[in-house]
Computed example of a mutant assay.
Amino acid sequence: MVLPSDRRRPTIRDVADVAGVSHGTVSRVINGGKWVSEDARAAVEDAIKTTGYTVSHAARSLATGRAGSVAFLLTEPQHLLFADPTFALLLRGATEALAQRDMTLVLLIAEDPSQYANIERYVRAGHVDGVLLVSSHESNPLLASLTAAGVPTVCSGVPLGDRAHVPTVSVDEEASARAMTRYLLDRGFERIAVITGPNDTPGGRFRLVGFRDEMGDRFDPALVEQDVYSSDAGAAAMTRLLERAPDIDAVFAASDVMAVGAIAALRKAGRRVPEDVAVAGFDDSGLAATADPPLTTMRQPWAEISSRMVEILLDSIAGIERDPVMLPTTLVIRDSA
């Protein structure tokens, strides 16, 4: 069989000739069609490598009416993309999942309301086929605007408010917080404080609910701090807690980033971790294992969260409705608690 000349670009028909299938079968494989046998798919994939064929995204867009890309939308200050490793983990996982489908990820950051309109115009203009929303605040209008415009959108975490129609991939925030709180109680700690995120975010609100429910009659509102997810915020919150309740013997920080800040504040105050105050985190984002001391934390399945978000978004783009997905977390015990 004659392969295409090096002087012209290989075509779908060249791939079909080498694979011994119809060009329609090649097209279905390239565009993610489901009605292809495993043998035919393998033959087409081998032929693509043999011929050096590459997909023309412009041609595909004209043929399908799709952009061949999706947006990774972060509605947080830009520096958090680098300061909070959870966002980087989701970004990497989504990029890898889309690359397997020959699609592109576009990073969009809407830091404040002045940027919302630009993001909405860009998305509604068809530059992307859908949106992976990786952070949501109850007061943020972007999610409602996107869904009202019919833009396929999938959320990481269950958004607050009346958003039942939005597909989500999440962990059970309340149950996870209860599990960590129960672990600290079972270790014999009595004055347990909590540092959690903003109350208008699902993690901030539901992790506090789980902590409060598990503490029961032992819950003390004076041992609660809520702030943004950052190391500086965790340190400031820990300092305020120590001023109000110097007898704290454990703290549950509802993110690893906050936990690291809390440890820094405890050391500054002359407290040892875990000898004087135990510290637990949430996420197991990579930061936990390298912290000093290594953090006891709740592990979120980051790779599965991002891959499932991509899977559900592509189904939504294809008009297939999907139920919400809730994934389990795992208690990881290290030296800090």
Rank of each mutant, 00 (worst) to 15 (best):
A236Q: 12
V171I: 15
T147V: 15
G150P: 06
S136F: 03
E214V: 07
L143S: 11
Y229Q: 10
P198K: 05
S176C: 06
V151F: 02
E225V: 12
H165R: 14
R218H: 12
L223N: 02
L146G: 05
A144T: 12
L241P: 00
T201I: 08
D200L: 02
N140Y: 04
A193F: 09
G234C: 10
D200S: 08
R207E: 04
G203I: 04
L242H: 00
T196Y: 01
Y183N: 07
G203R: 06
G216A: 14
V228L: 14
V194F: 03
P159D: 03
T153Q: 02
M215K: 06
R182N: 03
R187Y: 01
S170L: 04
A175E: 15
A236P: 02
E174R: 11
S145P: 01
T147E: 00
R182D: 05
G234R: 07
D162V: 13
S230L: 10
F206I: 06
E190F: 01
R182Q: 09
F211C: 01
R191H: 12
G204Q: 03
M215W: 11
G150I: 06
S136Y: 08
G161E: 04
V224H: 04
G216M: 03
L133R: 08
L185K: 14
L146Q: 05
S145E: 13
P159G: 12
T147A: 10
I248S: 00
T239W: 02
E225W: 11
D247L: 09
D172T: 04
N140D: 15
A177T: 00
L133P: 11
D227Y: 12
G150Q: 03
N199G: 15
G204V: 07
A236C: 00
L242W: 00
T196E: 00
R207Q: 08
A177S: 10
S230A: 12
P246V: 07
P202W: 07
D186E: 15
S156N: 12
T201N: 04
A164T: 14
D247S: 12
A164S: 15
Q226W: 06
F219S: 01
V158P: 00
F211W: 05
D172C: 01
L146F: 13
A175C: 04
P246Q: 09
T153I: 06
M215H: 05
P152A: 03
R240L: 13
A233Y: 08
L143Q: 07
L185E: 10
L146V: 09
D232A: 15
D162L: 11
T153H: 05
A177I: 02
V209E: 14
A233T: 06
F219E: 04
S176I: 04
A236I: 03
L223A: 08
